[in-house]
């Protein structure tokens, strides 16, 4: 194993350890996470950062232009976001809700290690901004998703009066709502910027009916979902449960766009043979 692989796999292991450690502390109803948990995650985050820097040095640009690197960058940003949100809100349960996906996707990015494919197109600054801001938007929506999930559980527990496992562990409804809204207004501008950048880049370099690329269509659907969420939230027209359910659906769309469609999208496939256009 070379140095990069060691760093990445250590990061995966440390994320896994951090995840494993959140379980007992949440189970024992500690309102905050233990130092061990945070330490493991911080160490994992540092190694992950080291890995990304090393990759960037190797390919001379941000490591986001192939599926594996994009995934890796996304989970790095998500863990970073976890820390920021945790420090701000001190929600111990956040670990339980965020870390499983972070761990799985980092693992996936490590497993899919392979040769990166090179294309002169990736040297374009437009593309880096395009992918970069979409990734930040996705991290925002990941938080929206987690907040919505916690909101739904909290709300249904309060409604059913069945004070079960989560009654003592989840943040107040208002805190979930606040996190939901703030992450939404973080994610939406970045996604919008990313999509616009993509359009600009595509219209300048691609020929043919690129608007019909599955990934572009899926992105538009995702973007619309979040636009609707934002509008209804501003107007106060939707109740909390409805918005939360929609946010969960929205994140499913994000995952489908981000991961699923990459597998068969022509122009966005990140795979050399399928990329028909220049």
């Amino acid at each position: 194993m070379n140095r990069d692989a060691v760093m990445l796999w250590s990061a995966v292991a440390l994320y896994g350890l951090g995840l494993a450690l959140t379980v007992p502390s949440t189970w024992r109803r500690r309102p905050t996470l233990t130092r061990g948990t945070l330490g493991a995650l911080a160490a994992g985050l540092t190694l992950h950062f080291g890995f990304l820097v090393s990759r960037a040095a190797e390919i001379h640009r941000l490591p986001i232009t192939d599926v594996r690197s994009a995934l890796s960058s996304f989970t790095f940003l998500a863990t970073l976001a976890f820390f920021l949100v945790y420090l701000r809100y001190r929600i111990g349960a956040l670990g339980l809700f965020m870390l499983p996906l972070v761990f799985l996707l980092t693992l996936l990015s490590a497993l899919r290690a392979g040769k990166t494919f090179e294309s002169p197109a990736f040297r374009s600054g437009w593309l880096v901004v395009h992918i970069g801001s979409i990734l930040i938007g996705y991290v925002g929506f990941f938080l929206t998703f987690v907040a919505a999930l916690m909101y739904l559980i909290r709300s249904s527990e309060l409604k059913s009066k069945n004070l079960g496992a989560f009654y003592f562990r989840l943040p107040p409804l208002d805190a979930c709502d606040q996190l939901y809204y703030r992450s939404l207004i973080l994610g939406l501008p970045f996604l919008s910027l990313g999509i616009i950048m993509g359009f600009v880049y595509a219209s300048r370099t691609w020929t043919g009916p690129w608007e019909l690329d599955p990934k572009i269509l899926a992105s538009m659907v995702t973007w619309l979902i979040y636009l609707v969420l934002f509008a209804t939230r501003l107007g106060g027209t939707w109740g909390g449960r409805r918005s939360a359910a929609m946010a969960i659906f929205g994140f499913a769309a994000v995952l489908a766009t981000f991961l699923g469609i990459s597998l068969w999208s022509g122009l966005h496939g990140y795979f050399p043979k399928l990329g028909g256009s220049p």
């Binding site: 309060l158 107040p172 409804l173 208002d174």
Partner: peptide, 8 residues
């Protein structure tokens, strides 16, 4: 307590 679970 319930009020705090809702409003913080």
């Amino acid at each position: 307590e319930l009020a705090k679970k809702i409003f913080g």
